[in-house]
């Protein structure tokens, strides 16, 4: 009887893991806000991943991503943008702006130091 319960519990857990982690989920992209100095800024919370994981900026205007790392884990302390040669350490519980290159439109992936967590910057051609 106990054995049957264990098997049912295990199957339930496995099903939950597959449903929770492995099914792709679409996430909303957040567009950067332009401040008085014409600087596009978007804040990304770093806590068990990047939130929002996709941000949008417009081409040709100066832009920055302000990372705010809440997560104490060393996993997320480094952020790497391979396309721009940026690799920076994010101080914990502080805002850390990183200037990004908006000269070319396109999608740019970034990740943590060990490439476990991913985020994306979309540089869009022009404002609608």
């Amino acid at each position: 009887m106990v054995k049957i319960l264990i098997v049912i519990g295990a199957l339930f857990l496995i099903g939950f893991i597959i449903w929770w982690f492995l099914i792709p989920r679409s996430q909303k992209a957040v567009t950067a806000q332009t401040d008085v100095n014409h600087l596009q800024n978007v804040t990304v919370k770093v806590d068990g991943g990047y939130q929002p994981s996709t941000v949008v900026v417009y081409q040709g205007e100066p832009a920055q991503i302000t990372f705010k790392r809440i997560d104490p884990s060393s996993c997320l302390e480094q952020v790497v943008f391979p396309d721009w040669g940026i690799s920076e350490y994010l101080p914990e519980k502080k805002e850390h702006p990183i200037k990004i290159d908006t000269s070319k439109a396109g999608e740019y992936q970034y990740a943590c130091g060990m490439n476990m967590f991913h985020g994306k910057v979309i540089v869009k051609k022009e404002r609608k």
């Binding site: 929770w20 982690f21 989920r25 806590d47 068990g48 991943g49 939130q51 994981s53 809440i70 997560d71 104490p72 884990s73 060393s74 996993c75 997320l76 060990m114 476990m116 967590f117």
Partner: peptide, 20 residues
């Protein structure tokens, strides 16, 4: 171990899992 737990929980909420 608290940071491991924190990070694991935060990642879990994002549907993500890592070494933590």
């Amino acid at each position: 171990a608290r940071p491991f737990l924190h990070s694991a929980w935060a990642a879990f909420k994002n549907h993500q899992a890592n070494m933590d």
